[in-house]
Simulated assay, not measured.
Amino acid sequence: MKNNEMEKLVRIALENGRDYSEVQTIKKIKGGSINEAYYVQTIDAEFFMKFHANAPKFFFKSEATGLRLLKETNTISVPSFLSYSDQPGRGFLLLEWIEGRKTDKTEETLGRKLADLHKSFGRLHGFDSDTYIGLLPQPNELNANWLEYYRDKRLGSQLEQGIETGNIEGKRRKQLEKLLETLDEWIPSFVEPSHLHGDLYSGNWIVGPGGEPYIVDPSFLYGDRHFELAYTELFGGFPSKFYEAYNENYPLRKEYEDIKPLYQLYYLMAHLNLFGEMYGEQIDQILDKYIGENF
């Protein structure tokens, strides 16, 4: 977006957020592969602004809702949002600016506070509106049965999208269809529906003042906390003291290692549908493990 157009949009975002102080600086910064990112400074405060000219329906509303629900647990730090818009051509999310330096306690604090978040429960699994993982739609529903939700709305939806795009076919498709039929052998039906960030990999947390960890970019849902933990171990993972602090605060169930690959499967399928075959080998290894190579 051109500088003068961005300045107008920033002013709209500030007015919507009830911050009327004069804009002093708008600077484009690095902020991920999906949205344009901007540092905004006014006389009174600093902000982080995401912009996407072609954001899908309710894209930024979904993220803002997730931030609000996480913040309301009073367990783990998340940025406050001031305003958002999903209007065509001017989609944005305006957040408080978070900046700080990591300390030797930061990762330990993140693990402990994530466990506190997971001790906050909803009534049902899933969510009452659709969300996104990246720009990929994530259909949702509320369901008392975690197995049904995970099978139908998570793995099942990615299977459908993969078939449509041609990323899932042949042996891979047959194995996945068989896995969904037999998923109850591994995934529990009734567990407590924790508040989950929903997209918590190593790139979705930052450091704030005093070394305080903040989680960002949620794709919120209620669900089995082990689903969240499994994803933290993909794509670089988290340091050992993070897991030690989490497990000390909220010990993992004994079957976690047995179901972890099945929870990682969802995120690998989503990445397959987003980015292509580079994630296919990991998916096939999981399917061979649970369904068998000679299926």
Rank of each mutant, 00 (worst) to 15 (best):
F47R: 03
I98D: 07
N3H: 06
S120H: 11
Q41E: 12
F60T: 12
R68Q: 15
D44G: 14
S219I: 13
L229I: 09
R173L: 15
E148V: 13
A37Y: 14
G100R: 02
I163K: 10
I168F: 00
K241A: 08
I34W: 15
S62C: 04
T75F: 06
G126R: 00
G198C: 04
I76F: 03
A270D: 10
G17M: 02
N140A: 07
G166M: 07
K105F: 06
K174S: 04
D104W: 10
N273T: 12
S85E: 12
G156R: 15
P261V: 06
L229Y: 01
E257W: 01
N16A: 11
P239V: 09
D104C: 07
P251G: 02
H271C: 01
K2P: 04
H226I: 14
F220G: 01
R123H: 08
D130L: 00
F121L: 09
L94Q: 03
F295M: 15
E244N: 13
I26W: 10
G276W: 12
I168C: 00
S157A: 10
F58V: 09
P137A: 14
E96Y: 03
P218R: 05
E7S: 12
K178N: 11
T165V: 11
F242V: 11
G292P: 12
Y20H: 13
E277I: 12
L70G: 05
L117K: 05
A270Y: 13
I133M: 09
L155C: 02
V78N: 01
L136W: 06
E281L: 12
G223T: 05
Q264M: 04
W97A: 01
P79G: 00
D217A: 02
H226L: 08
H195L: 15
L274H: 07
V40Q: 04
L287R: 09
H271N: 08
E22I: 13
S33Q: 15
V207G: 03
K102C: 14
L147N: 01
Q158E: 00
S189N: 14
E148S: 13
H271T: 01
G17C: 04
E244M: 04
Y201C: 12
D130Q: 03
I133A: 12
D128Y: 06
L14T: 03
P193T: 01
D224A: 02
N249R: 04
G134K: 07
E22G: 13
